[in-house]
């Protein structure tokens, strides 16, 4: 069996390039991070209407990513949407009790995400607490309906 070193080198480089490519797809394209998942804590928030919010959506504060939406379910006590937020562990015990959560839209047609705004209460939120002050998603149909009914009234 004749084997040339260049052929072995070629196959080795080929396989290495494939593995590196997969790493590129993981890190650069799908945005995985190599660091171990940092400790997180969860908060609950009830929204009257979540619009198009989906699990895995971003949670931001002042535009900075601080966590993600981990679950969305229907709260059958109040018939509104119960959204579970998974936030950076560094924020545990830092957010004041009257922090507000709003469902915002990135751009006109972009994805929806949750924006937190800080409050002024000296008491802070811990793991599993519920945000009481929430603002629902902007649903275009409702806005148009309001606009039309206002026009009719005038």
């Amino acid at each position: 069996m004749k084997r040339s070193k260049t052929m072995e080198l070629g196959v080795g480089l080929f396989m290495l390039a494939g593995i590196l490519g997969l790493v590129f797809l993981g890190l650069r394209v799908s945005g995985l991070s190599l660091s171990v998942p940092a400790d997180t804590f969860t908060l609950q928030a009830n929204f009257a209407n979540i619009g198009g919010l989906k699990p895995r959506a971003r949670v931001t504060m002042a535009g900075v990513n601080v966590g993600r939406v981990s679950a969305i379910e229907l709260d059958t006590d109040w018939y509104d949407a119960r959204v579970t937020l998974e936030l950076d562990g560094a924020l545990e015990g830092q957010l004041s009790r009257d922090t507000t959560a709003a469902i915002l839209t990135a751009g006109l047609l972009g994805e929806q995400y949750v924006g937190l705004s800080p409050g002024g209460d000296p008491e802070t939120l811990g793991d599993g607490d519920t945000l009481t002050d929430t603002q629902s998603a902007l649903v275009l149909e409702e806005l148009i309906q309001q606009f039309v009914s206002n026009m009719v009234r005038d």
């Binding site: 797809l25 993981g26 650069r28 394209v29 799908s30 945005g31 995985l32 895995r56 971003r58 994805e111």
Partner: peptide, 15 residues
Amino acid sequence: YWSNMQASVDFIADV
């Protein structure tokens, strides 16, 4: 270009 890609591509589901 990159951030919209990273926000929407899931490693397990897509790659």
